[in-house]
Design a protein around this nucleic acid. Structure first.
Lengths: 154, 154
DNA sequence: TGCCGTGAGTTGCGAAAGGAAACCATCTGT
DNA sequence: ACAGATGGTTTCCTTTCGCAACTCACGGCA
């Protein structure tokens, strides 16, 4: 099976991965969240080849995760900004950071820290139940087919 | 820059991606969270080629995200199970699902639903501050260099 | 007027990774 | 003896990477 077909599955993870499940794509998004906006900066800070950065930026724009805007005419210069769809990847990024912090600590502590301005503490993202607010324990969560899967089977 | 070098960056996202940032790897992990444990099932349910599944499973075992156990002798049969490190990817998976649900709905609703047994509702993961419990708003979070980055620069 | 520098890409080519199918090995059931 | 299940490995071909070089449009400047 090829990657173009993956997005066609009735599975939100597969669909999400078909748009942002690529290694360079995720590094580009890391930079976007750190306010990088210009082509050259993406190349420099991700370490990816220029053609790959160009390709990933264009795909992200096509997917409406980033938008490309002119920030200067003559000569035309562009910037790439997160859209709402892109900003919604924040929980994903925070989850990646936290997992990396926890399992890839080389003994020197965290590479970066997140400070919650509201409470003033160094924090990480803690997933909770959207309905009752309790901290999520995977063992307390049942998975069952949703409308889309049921429609498909029946 | 090659992918092997990425993990060496002083960046938790880069380090995380070096282990689980691959497309097939993430689909394999999706299955692991859905209790898939056998080689043939991974092949069938991810749709990946057998050689790729074999490669990804071995890498995940080497990274201590999965463990390979004999569940039957004569003939020897193996199962792949999430380790604690693997189970800790739960927030990442929930973030992927939720993003996919929100932005890739084809009008037929969610492919799968998560039910919180504790409160009985269909839910999704909501990231909150680990310190004060408030719902996370990216604009309320400051990013600053952590110990590892400071040690590197100074 | 020519020349340099900057930003944003595009092109070309050898090397690495991916994808499909065939093949192998071990054991069980009939 | 032979088919079927399980868990891979090998082979071969195509696609994608990774790197360097090149283009293009302009602005400054001497």
């Amino acid at each position: 099976m090829k990657w173009e077909e993956i997005g066609g599955q009735t599975c939100s993870i597969a669909r999400a991965l078909s748009e942002v499940g690529d290694r360079w794509t995720l590094l580009v998004l890391r930079e976007a969240f750190l306010r990088t906006s210009r082509f050259g900066d993406f190349v420099e800070r991700t370490g990816a080849a220029r053609n790959l950065v160009a390709d990933r930026l264009h795909k992200l724009v096509a997917a409406d995760v980033l938008e490309r805007r002119v920030y200067q005419e003559k000569p035309e210069r562009f910037e790439y900004r997160l859209t709402q769809k892109g900003r919604d990847l924040y929980p994903l990024m925070m989850a990646l950071v936290h997992w990396g912090d926890r399992w890839h600590d080389d003994g020197r502590g965290k590479p970066i820290e997140h400070v919650h301005r509201t409470c003033g503490h160094v924090m990480h993202a803690e997933p909770t139940c959207s309905e009752c607010g309790e901290r999520l324990d995977p063992r307390q969560v049942d998975v069952r087919p949703g409308p889309a899967l049921l429609a498909e089977e029946g």
